[in-house]
Each structure stands twice: as C-alpha cells, then as structure tokens.
C-alpha cells in the first residue's frame, strides 16, 4: 500500500496535513472580457471569465441571473478525455458554481440581467471545483460585480485517520472522503458544500472545520491578487487629483 503521510507527518509533496498547495493568481489577463482570472493551486490550473451583467435571456426576473459554463480541456486530465458537447458532469459542476455565486452576488442590484461565467480547466490535479470557485471569485471582482464577500473554496479529506487539507490527484486515489466547501470568510457562512462519499458522522465536523480554515487562509491570497490588479490599473486613471 502506498504511504500517503510519512512518519514525520509529511505528505507525498512535502506539505503538512493542514497546509495548502502553492497558489498563483493572475487577474485581468484577457483584455476583451469584462472580467477574467487565472488561478492555480498546485498543479490544478483554471481560467475563469465573466461577461456581464448584460441583458437577460428568457424570462425577466427581479434579480439577476447567474449562468456558468464549465469545461475541461482534453489534455487537462492524466488520461486524455475527449470533450463532449453536452457533458453531464460538466453541466452539473457549472450549475453548482452558478448557484454558489448567486448567494454571494448582490443579484438584486442587477434586475432583468444576466451574468455569464465560463470556467475552463487547463490542468486538473485534484480539487478542481474548489480552484474553479476561487478563480471565478477573482474574475467577478475584476468585472466589478457587486458581491457581499469573497467566496473562498477548499477541499479536505481524511487519509489514514488524519484530516488533510487541499488534496491533490494522487491523494484522492487514497479513496478517502473529499469534502469541498465554499465559505464567505467574513461571516463564516458556508455557501456550498459537496461530498460524494460515505464518511463516519463523527469525522464530518472535523473535516468541515478544516475546510473552513483552509478557505479563510485563502482569503488574504485572493485579496492580494485583486489589490495587485487594482494597483496596476491605477495609472490608467491619469494623474492623481
């Protein structure tokens, strides 16, 4: 059996149990999009693009609608996966992301309009949904969409009796439960939680706490990315008044 956590308490990639992977963010790299962001956590790389708010399609509602297109590149996974036009798994992840952000975006401010999000996964190495949510947060910030808070997402799992944070693809093969949680850090509210495996009831609370801690730790990193982008844009305003 492979060893996921060494005797010294280090994981296969050298992290401690409660450590996140290296994070890299790039906001606003697509000049033609209203908002765009690249977010990388370890070897999971995601591009998110936001278009809108624009005129809504279909039934006009009092609150703005959020739609999300989720796509994975054919070369993103270890085994090449031919992209399908209507992929149910992708459609499900897309609607999950859309509903997550409907609870964070102040949709009342955008009546009769629609906010379009597209997520493109360039490389998948575990925690794709969480990384995608973080990328979308940055893209929405770049587009200037009003939100109540950053949405920070993180995964947590149990491997060999230890709770571990932000698992990668290799660690996912340990078949432990993988919990993905999206939080609004300032109010510690959970806006999305997903787990697709069985777990002992006593373990769940610990997993959830760990994932929340992970999400809150991401907040300053996401904030920094937005600040950096804004600082880079400042000269565009012309000389200071």
């Amino acid at each position: 059996m492979p060893e996921y956590i060494s005797v010294e308490g280090l994981r296969e990639d050298g992290r401690r149990a409660n450590e996140l992977r290296r994070v890299e963010a790039n906001v606003g790299m697509f000049p033609h999009a209203d908002g765009s962001a690249y977010f990388q956590q370890g070897d999971t790389k995601v591009v998110a693009i936001v278009n809108g708010p624009k005129q809504g399609v279909g039934k006009a509602g009092d609150a703005g609608k959020v739609v999300c297109d989720f796509e994975m590149a054919a070369f993103s996974t270890t085994q090449r996966r031919k992209p399908l036009r209507l992929d149910r798994k992708n459609a499900e992840l897309g609607s999950k992301i859309a509903s997550t952000f409907e609870s964070a975006i102040m949709t009342d401010l955008y009546p009769r309009s629609q906010i379009e999000i597209s997520v493109q996964v360039l490389q998948a190495d575990g925690g794709v949904l969480a990384v995608a949510i973080n990328a979308v947060t940055l893209a929405l910030m770049d587009a200037g969409v009003a939100m109540t808070d950053f949405v920070c997402a993180c995964t947590a799992s149990v491997i060999d009796g230890t709770n571990v944070l932000d698992i990668n693809h290799y660690e996912a093969s340990a078949q432990g439960p993988e919990l993905t949680i999206a939080v609004l850090p300032s109010s510690s509210t959970i806006v999305m939680a997903e787990m697709k495996s069985r777990v002992h009831g006593d373990l769940y609370a610990g997993l959830q706490d760990l994932a929340i801690v992970g999400g809150t730790t991401l907040l300053p990193l996401l904030k920094k990315a937005v600040h950096d982008r804004t600082r880079a844009m400042l000269p565009c305003l012309g000389p200071a008044a």
Partner: peptide, 17 residues
Amino acid sequence: FSISSSSANATVAALDA
C-alpha cells in the same frame, strides 16, 4: 488533431456554437 474553441472565448467574442 482536435481543435476546439473554449466557452470562455464564445462568451467574450459572442460566437455561437
């Protein structure tokens, strides 16, 4: 060879499928 246009491109460039 397989070439595809990302949905990220479609939303921005207003390209239909």
